[in-house]
């Protein structure tokens, strides 16, 4: 049954060892960059959705609906294949000539904007779970709106959101694997790629899985530490 000889040296033998390390590095940088964009855009969209202006609310809602109801893979393809065609021929040739690793940047943008829609929703539900009376109490002591948000609401909301935030980062990290479809050599793609040379894909994909699991555990540990420090007595922070 087991007509397969394992060759674990493929993980460190050159050039494969270096490829694997490069793949890990790409996964990490891709995920972190995408996450930064996601948080930035997510805050803006959450702000739009909570706005008093009906146009801004609709814009925020449209963003979330579009980016959540279309599969991430389709979004990646739109950015990679379709978006350049919408540019003028000059802009396009500049893009192809000057931007190295176009697939990598596409991956970051796609991952960031997709994750932003989910982050925005979590911001919004975190803000909404703060009882109205907290706002009233803060205003009643004479604080101005920006002070209320800065000193009372955001710290409170932050503690509520943290568990779902860290889960979302883990999801972002896992989604980075999908950028392999547009050519990014992150760890999953690297594992698959090495298989086509050595026929030892089992070892490489095992290593890739271990990477993801390892990072997942680290994130879980980090979250536990953060929650411990920020736990408010009597408040249920595990809201997901």
């Amino acid at each position: 049954m087991l007509n397969y000889t394992f060759d674990w040296s493929v993980l460190w033998r050159q050039p494969y060892g270096e490829m694997m390390l490069l793949g890990i590095r790409t996964t990490i940088t891709l995920s972190l960059a995408g996450w930064c964009i996601a948080v930035l855009v997510g805050v803006i969209v959450a702000g739009l959705r909570s706005s008093k202006n009906v146009w801004m609310r609709s814009l925020g809602l449209a963003y979330v609906l579009v980016f959540r109801n279309i599969p991430f893979l389709v979004q990646l393809f739109v950015w990679y294949f379709a978006a350049p065609l919408l540019l003028s021929a000059d802009a396009r040739s500049w893009l192809y000539d000057n931007v190295q690793n176009y697939d990598y940047w596409c991956g970051i943008v796609g991952l960031g904007l997709y994750t932003a829609s989910r982050v925005a929703e979590q911001f919004r539900s975190g803000l909404r779970s703060i009882p109205q009376d907290q706002y009233r109490a803060a205003y009643a002591t004479g604080l101005r709106p920006n002070q209320v948000y800065r000193y009372v609401i955001f710290p409170y909301a932050f503690r509520i959101i943290i568990p779902s935030f860290t889960t979302e980062f883990l999801t972002c990290f896992k989604n980075s694997a999908l950028t392999m479809t547009i050519g990014v050599m992150e760890i999953t793609h690297t594992a698959y790629y090495i298989d086509s040379f050595t026929w030892h894909g089992l070892e490489t994909t095992t290593a890739a899985s271990l990477c993801y699991l390892f990072i997942a555990q680290i994130i879980a540990l980090l979250m536990w530490q953060v929650e411990r420090r920020m736990h408010i007595m009597g408040m249920i922070t595990r809201g997901h």
Binding site: K174, N175, T188, Y192, G201, T205, A216
Partner: peptide, 14 residues
Amino acid sequence: GIPLILVIFWIYFL
């Protein structure tokens, strides 16, 4: 803790 795409690879190729 692992991406779905990796699971698909596992099952199909490996």
